[in-house]
């Protein structure tokens, strides 16, 4: 291994890959969270027909592999003339947007279920207290239940983000040069397979540590420690 070439040539490429991985995961889990809020609320509804609306979506995306979903979007959609003729083709022809779309749809389903569990775990007495003070259904959801559920669901959400980080490695299969894509390309060029996969592993681990830190900070800010022992 020539260290000079590694630092001058390959490490910047690996870091580019880390940048792409981080970008895909960050956008997917934030967009997923936003999309999951109405879905999670619907899933926690007491009305069966409201609960059933997001059910098929969640069932599909949790029940099939991310890799399959990615192939369905990237390879599958392009075979339809209507898709190729539509405005969406500008995006769907691009593996970056396909990966981002698939990852977002996939993680949304998981986050929605995390949120459903969290909303249902808010003790009913606390919701009653909000209603007894005159808050409307919407107000108690907005000001009491969701902030409370956010704290209950945060550990599960941080877990989901780290799972998505690792699952994001599948995007190399649609030509994207994320950490995994770079490692594969570079090791094919240099025949230094094990070395570059170790570098890739270290990058994933470093990002995991960073994410864990960020979530620990958020937990501290939200005073999650104050919910223990009840």
């Amino acid at each position: 291994m020539n260290w000079e070439t590694f630092f001058d040539k390959w490490l910047p490429k690996m870091l580019d890959g880390a940048g792409l991985t981080l970008e895909l995961v960050t956008i997917a889990v934030i967009a997923g969270l936003i999309l999951a809020i109405p879905m999670g609320i619907a899933r926690a509804s007491s009305k069966p027909w409201v609960r059933s609306i997001p059910y098929a979506y969640i069932f599909f995306f949790r029940g099939t592999p991310l890799l399959l979903q990615l192939f369905m979007v990237y390879y599958g959609l392009s075979q339809f003339e209507a898709v190729r003729q539509s405005w969406a083709w500008t995006y769907l022809r691009d593996p970056y947007w396909c990966a981002l779309l698939t990852m977002t749809l996939h993680t949304t389903a998981y986050i929605a279920e995390i949120l459903r569990g969290a909303i249902q775990s808010v003790p009913s007495g606390e919701v009653e207290a909000a209603r007894a003070l005159g808050m409307s259904r919407v107000q108690s959801m907005l000001y009491i239940v969701l902030p409370r559920a956010a704290r209950i669901g945060l550990p599960a959400y941080s877990n989901e983000v780290i799972l998505m980080l690792k699952a994001s490695a599948v995007v190399y299969t649609v030509t994207l040069l994320d950490i995994m894509g770079q490692a594969k390309t570079i090791s094919a060029r240099t025949y230094e397979n094990e070395f570059f996969y170790i570098v890739a592993a270290l990058l994933y681990l470093a990002i995991t540590i960073g994410l864990t830190r960020i979530f620990r900070f958020i937990e501290h800010k939200l005073r999650v420690d104050m919910l223990q022992g009840r």
């Binding site: 606390e126 007894a132 409370r148 939200l222 919910l227």
Partner: peptide
């Protein structure tokens, strides 16, 4: 009913304070 509730205080056995 929301107006009635806001003018009719209710104190619970288990307090039901919001812990967060």
């Amino acid at each position: 009913i929301n107006r009635f509730r806001s003018e009719m205080g209710f104190v619970f056995q288990n307090f039901n304070l919001w812990p967060h």
